[in-house]
C-alpha cells in the first residue's frame, strides 16, 4: 500500500470541521504549515489534551475534566432545582440571565423522530434517573421552542410524572421590551392562546 501523503491527510482531516469543504480545508492547511507553525503545534497539542482529559460530567452530562463538574459540586447551587437544556450553549445563556441558581442537565441534542433520534439515542432515561435522586424537587424543562424541543419536553414530562416528580416548562411569549406591533405573528398567536389569569 502506498504511504498517504501527510498534506493530503491533513486536508482530509480538516474537513471534519463543520462548514469546511475541500477548498477551505486546503487553505487552512497551507496557512497553518506556512504562516503559523507555532499556532498549528499549539492547536494539535490542545486537541490531543482535550481529547484525553475532557469527558461528560456524571451528573449533568456537560464536558468537564473531572468526573463531576465544578457547577454540580458547588454548595452555592440549589440542588433541588434541575434544569434540562439541549446544549452547553443554552446552559451558558441560562447562566447569563442570573435568574437561575439551580443545577443543570445538558442533553447534547434533542428528540428528532424523522432523523431517527429517539429517547434511547439521547439517553433520556439518564435524565429521569438523575432527577429521581431524592434531592431534586422540581425538573425545569428549558428545551427549545421548536417542534423537536417540544417533543423532548413532552417525553421528559411524561417520564417525570410517571415517577411522581414535579415538572415545569419555561414560559414563552412576547419578548421583554417587545411591542406587539413588531412581534412576529406566530409568537403573538401562541401568547394569546397561552394567556394566563391575573386574578
Amino acid at each position: 500500500m502506498k504511504a498517504t501523503n501527510s498534506l493530503d491527510h491533513l486536508i482530509e482531516s480538516l474537513r471534519c470541521l463543520p462548514g469546511v469543504g475541500p477548498k477551505s480545508a486546503q487553505r487552512i492547511a497551507y496557512y497553518l504549515l506556512q504562516r503559523d507553525r507555532d499556532g498549528a503545534a499549539a492547536l494539535a497539542a490542545a486537541l490531543m489534551q482535550s481529547l484525553e482529559t475532557l469527558r461528560h460530567c456524571q451528573r449533568c452530562n456537560t464536558l468537564t475534566e473531572a468526573d463531576i463538574c465544578e457547577r454540580c459540586l458547588s454548595p452555592q447551587r440549589d440542588a433541588s432545582l434541575l434544569c434540562v437544556v439541549e446544549s452547553p450553549v443554552d446552559m451558558n445563556m441560562m447562566e447569563q440571565t442570573l435568574a437561575y441558581s439551580g443545577l443543570y442537565y445538558v442533553l447534547m441534542g434533542r428528540l428528532s423522530p424523522l432523523d431517527g433520534v429517539g429517547p434511547r439515542e439521547l439517553s433520556l432515561e439518564r435524565v429521569l434517573a438523575r432527577a429521581s435522586d431524592g434531592v431534586v424537587k422540581e425538573l425545569i424543562l428549558a428545551t427549545n421552542f421548536t417542534n423537536e424541543g417540544e417533543a423532548t419536553a413532552h417525553y421528559l414530562s411524561e417520564g417525570a410524572r410517571a415517577r411522581g416528580l414535579s415538572v415545569t416548562r419555561i414560559a414563552r411569549g412576547v419578548p421583554v421590551g417587545g411591542e406587539l406591533e413588531y412581534v412576529d405573528p406566530g409568537t403573538l398567536a401562541q401568547a394569546v392562546r397561552e394567556r394566563r389569569s391575573l386574578a
Binding site: 423522530p113 417542534n147 417540544e150 417533543a151 413532552h154 398567536a189 401562541q190 392562546r193
Partner: peptide, 10 residues
C-alpha cells in the same frame, strides 16, 4: 393552527 404539543406532536 395552534402549535402541536404532547402526543399530537408525535
Amino acid at each position: 393552527q395552534p402549535l402541536l404539543s404532547g402526543k399530537a406532536l408525535f
